[in-house]
């Protein structure tokens, strides 16, 4: 089990989004990363791969719903539940 604070987890997710996008993440963690144009459909597999590597988790195909990765907040909710 990974032990980390909610703030640390969210900061790591923001850093991963910025690494994949090559741009700053939105200030609002609830803002859609796709509707804002920060990420496109081909960046999403990269982001999922980066999350898996960084957090040491395997995200099953059945969980690969784009809505789970639409914003930093939604990713945080999903990864938090996976790590709990």
């Amino acid at each position: 089990m990974v032990n980390m604070s909610d703030a640390t987890r969210r900061a790591r997710l923001r850093a991963l989004v910025e690494k994949v996008a090559g741009k700053p993440a939105p200030a609002d963690d609830d803002e859609s990363l796709f509707e804002s144009g920060l990420l496109d459909s081909f960046a999403l597999p990269d982001l999922v791969g980066a999350i898996e590597e960084d957090f040491g988790v395997k995200i099953p195909d059945a969980d690969l719903n784009p809505r789970k990765f639409d914003s930093v907040a939604r990713m945080d909710e999903y990864i938090g539940a996976r790590l709990a």
């Binding site: 459909s41 597999p45 999922v48 690969l64």
Partner: peptide, 13 residues
């Protein structure tokens, strides 16, 4: 078509 879902799944499967 949900392009995000299609690309995400296809790129793995």
């Amino acid at each position: 078509m949900n392009g995000l879902s299609v690309i995400l799944q296809a790129s793995r499967k």
